[in-house]
Design a protein around this nucleic acid. Structure first.
Length: 593
RNA sequence: GGUCCCGUGGAGCAGUACGGAGUGCUCGCCGCCCUGUCAAGGCGGAGGUCGCGGGUUCAAAUCCCGUCGGGACCGCCA
């Protein structure tokens, strides 16, 4: 044992104790005759005093982040020299010996909670970044989150099972990462996008209750909340209803927020249907921390001569609005800025009417195009007051218009300071549609092709795929989807009818996931589950915007690991051995170079 | 695939709209001083191809074009 005590745990109770401590020089204050060193270990910091000893002269040579061992006596600090900012601020250790275990070169950046360093530099030297207690706390929190989830699940007799990470390409939405196979040139593994199919097979296997903290891989472009490899808390159970999974997921979520955010989840959480969420908030993951709900005006504005609106209405589409409180005081330039904002989102524009702050009279370019009658009831219809701005979206595609308004609502929330940063607002989004139209005129699965239609639709989803609803449920927290799941199809007949709607032939289905269909033959139990986006859950609990903060060694937006510099070119030998240049005989002969 | 922002000693910034000597700030680093500090203090010092490559100009950190890197967003991601 190197040490007798942990630096951060020393207190007045240890006064007069002889202690040996190890750790890093967090900071030193050299006064010539006396020197103070803040010694940091994983438990915290304590002040070490060097004075009148051999150790004291050696201490002058110390520099920040040297790794040292000291022996000394714990003492009460002299009257007036206590530091109430530190948990150990009432005591100090008077050192009588010092051993430098490891010197530190000058640092690429200062290890200091008070100083901002760019992410680039921090992650290149992440091992130094993580010496900052604040940065390390995010990973410690994640460890506790893992533990809390395991406690709930194991308490419910769930079995933690690992599934392969070298597997076959699965039929889900994202691009796969591929791994060449040396022993079978031309054949490749894929890294799993999720353990979806394996967990269903574990249900066929009779485990009844499975979970895993699973690494998943998707080869898509990145965002602040996406990494090429990410983690799900993956859960599946047999003989469960939607209510059972909802209850379990709420207990996991409640446990996390109770212990890590000191917040008692109001259970049961409110449930919105997918359509209700779209109608009211223009999003399938609404941020319920503020109001500004959308108002549908399709009926109110019927008969208008304004072509932007009438075109959408006559096409059976949607016209709606969202209110920006106080938005009438925006300059023309700011109002034009909203047009650019909408265009950047692929919309044609964002029509608006401002209500005069004094008279409430509707003004603006769009107001001129609307009749007296339509303008008259507008403010009441959308719940706007004098001085507000009303933004409109119209489209033959209801969802498209609603999503534009939903994005505008969020932007209004941000710009007008309507979002309480300390608030938590959870809800479930249930009854999502089964299918959405593809560009080619067919249908694709909104969730995934194994999601069960709900009882209302199970016998007739193919007659009206656009309106069919699923047994699905997502937890949304402050506008983030933190978990999503569904009751799965366990009946082969239903499954093949779903494939028919998706335009997937029997042969294609067999080719892509015949192993799952084969498994479903042998007495597959009814089952369902849910998966938490674990990085996002931890980021929310850590109160950070970026999931990178809760990942030990995250990648940059281009998928580069700033620490190892991966991915890197391979040697010609590796290339030859991996067999990646293998050209299939029947395939197009397009070998590069 | 598209849009926007950033790139200046080791870190973080200012300087760039309107071209005029690498100018400045905070911190760190090195040396000296200092016996109660705690984001210690004082004095002195070192350290920069202004991301890179072209172009315009008597003259470019500054203007133009291209490119690389980082960040954010749209598309994409059940």
């Amino acid at each position: 044992m190197y040490r007798t005590h942990l630096a951060g745990t020393l207190s007045a109770a240890d006064v007069d104790q002889q202690v040996t401590l190890v750790g890093w020089v967090a900071r030193r204050r050299d006064h010539g005759g006396v020197e103070f060193v803040d010694l940091r270990d994983a438990s915290g910091v304590v002040q070490v005093v060097f004075r009148d000893s051999e150790a004291a002269s050696a201490a002058h040579e110390l520099r920040n982040e040297f790794c040292i061992e000291i022996t000394g006596v714990v003492a009460q600090r002299p009257e007036g020299n206590e530091n109430p900012e530190l948990p150990t601020g009432w005591i100090e250790v008077t050192a009588d010996s010092l051993t430098v275990l490891s010197e530190a070169a000058p640092l690429p950046f200062q290890i200091d909670e008070h100083i901002d360093v760019s992410e680039d530099v921090r992650y290149r030297h992440r091992y130094l970044d993580l010496r900052r207690p604040g940065a390390a706390a995010a990973l410690r929190l994640r460890s506790r989150a893992n533990h809390i989830a395991r406690e709930v699940l194991i308490g419910d007799d769930f079995v933690e099972i690992e599934t392969p990470t070298l597997t076959r390409s699965t039929p889900e939405g994202a691009r796969d990462f591929l791994v060449p196979v040396r022993l079978q040139p031309g054949s490749w593994y894929a890294l799993p996008q999720s353990p979806q199919l394996f967990k269903q097979l574990l249900m066929v296997a009779g485990f009844e209750r499975y979970f895993q903290i699973a690494r998943c891989y998707r080869d898509e472009d990145f965002r602040a909340d996406r990494q090429p490899e990410f983690t799900q808390l993956d859960v599946e159970a047999s003989f469960v209803t939607q209510e059972d999974v909802v209850d379990l997921a709420e207990r996991i979520t409640a446990g996390l927020w109770r212990e890590l955010a000191d917040y008692e989840l109001p259970r049961p959480l409110p449930q919105l249907t997918w359509h209700e969420a779209m109608d009211r908030f223009g999003s399938d993951k609404p941020d319920l921390r503020f109001g500004q709900e959308l108002t549908e005006l399709t009926d109110h504005l019927r008969g208008t001569s304004f072509r932007v609106f009438s075109g959408a209405i006559e096409a059976g589409g949607y016209v709606g609005a969202v209110v920006m409180p106080g938005g009438a005081s925006q300059t023309r330039r700011e109002l034009d800025g909203w047009q650019d904002w909408a265009k950047a989102r692929g919309a044609k524009g964002l029509a608006y009417v401002v209500l005069d702050a004094e008279t409430g009279e509707p003004k603006g370019p769009v107001a001129k195009n609307l009749s007296e009658e339509h303008l008259a009831g507008l403010a009441d219809a959308v719940g706007a007051k004098a001085g507000d701005a009303v933004f409109f979206a119209a489209s033959a595609d209801r969802r498209e218009a609603q999503e534009l308004l939903g994005a505008a609502r969020l932007e209004i929330g941000r710009r007008c300071g309507l979002i309480d940063r300390d608030a938590w607002a959870f809800c479930w989004i249930v009854d999502a549609p089964m299918f959405e139209p593809t560009d080619e005129g067919g249908w694709s699965a909104v969730h995934h092709p194994f999601t069960s239609p709900n009882p209302e639709w199970i016998d007739k989803f193919e007659s009206d795929p656009g309106n069919a609803l699923t047994y699905s449920y997502d937890i949304v927290c402050n506008g983030n989807e933190i978990a999503g799941g569904s009751i799965r199809i366990h009946d082969r007949g239903v499954q093949s009818r779903v494939f028919d709607v998706l335009g997937l032939s029997h042969e294609d289905a067999q080719e892509k996931f015949g192993f799952l269909l084969e498994g479903l033959k042998y007495g597959a139990p009814p089952h369902g589950g849910i998966a938490f986006g674990w990085d996002r859950v931890c980021a929310l609990l850590a109160k950070t915007d970026s999931i990178r903060e809760v990942i030990a060694f995250p990648k940059t937006g281009a998928g580069q690991d700033p620490l190892t510099d991966a991915p890197t070119p391979i040697t010609p030998e590796q290339r030859a051995e991996a067999g990646i240049d293998f050209v299939p005989e029947t395939g197009p002969h397009e070998a590069e170079d």
